[in-house]
Simulated assay, not measured.
Amino acid sequence: MKVFLNVIRAQGMVLVNICQVELLGKVFKDGDIILDINEKFYGGELVELDYAFSLIDEATVMSIVGNYVVDEAIKRGIVHKDSVLSVSGVKFAQVYNV
């Protein structure tokens, strides 16, 4: 499966942002919670999901958006199921390597 991957390196941090293709550019709201899947943060290269997940070791923070992608991260042991948020039915998770 192809996903958008955007790696941002700034101030000694490496942010690895992974987004399902069909979600890029959309905004989801659930009460006061807003999930803005914007081009600046999530847009980037179109890559295979396996490659995107392979960057976990170099990531300071990995941000993962999309039901399929988050479920796959759970299956692979990257994300714990209890740490997943859902905004208007769209799953979102962050992994911190500190």
Rank of each mutant, 00 (worst) to 15 (best):
D71Y: 09
V16N: 02
E58P: 00
E22K: 13
V14F: 00
S83C: 09
G89N: 06
I74M: 02
I56Q: 10
Y42T: 05
I34Q: 11
Y42W: 13
V90A: 09
G66Y: 06
L85A: 11
R76G: 03
F92E: 01
C19Y: 07
V61D: 01
L15M: 09
Q94M: 08
E72C: 02
K91R: 14
V70P: 09
V7Q: 03
V84R: 07
A93L: 02
V98H: 04
A52M: 06
S83V: 11
R9A: 03
V95P: 07
V70H: 12
I33N: 04
V69E: 02
S63M: 13
F92N: 05
V70A: 08
G89I: 10
S83Q: 11
V3S: 01
E39A: 01
G43I: 15
M13V: 04
L49S: 08
I33K: 10
E48C: 08
N6Y: 07
L35P: 10
A10I: 14
S54V: 04
L15C: 02
N67T: 04
S54E: 07
D32F: 05
K40Y: 12
A59V: 06
G89K: 09
E72S: 05
A73T: 02
G31F: 14
F92R: 05
F53V: 01
E48D: 15
G12I: 15
I64N: 03
K2F: 12
S63N: 15
F28Y: 15
I8G: 00
Q11I: 10
D71V: 13
D57G: 12
K26P: 06
I33S: 06
S63F: 08
V70S: 09
N17W: 04
G77L: 04
L24H: 12
A59C: 04
V69K: 00
V87Y: 10
A52K: 03
F4H: 15
S63D: 13
V69M: 00
I8N: 01
V16L: 01
V16T: 06
L85T: 01
F4I: 04
A10R: 13
V98I: 09
L46E: 15
K2H: 11
Y68V: 15
Y68W: 11
H80G: 03
I34K: 15
D57C: 02
G31S: 12
D32I: 04
C19H: 07
K26S: 10
E39H: 08
E39C: 01
Q11V: 11
D32T: 05
Y68I: 14
S88L: 14
V84C: 04
G44Q: 07
N17C: 03
L46I: 15
E45F: 08
I74T: 03
R76W: 07
A59I: 04
F53C: 00
L5F: 03
F53T: 00
M62Q: 05
R9W: 03
I34Y: 05
L5N: 02
E45S: 13
L24W: 07
D30R: 12
I33Q: 03
Q20E: 15
A10P: 00
D36W: 11
L49N: 01
F4W: 15
V87W: 12
S88R: 14
S63G: 06
A10W: 06
V47C: 06
V27Q: 13
M62T: 09
I18N: 00
V65G: 02
D71M: 09
D57H: 11
C19E: 05
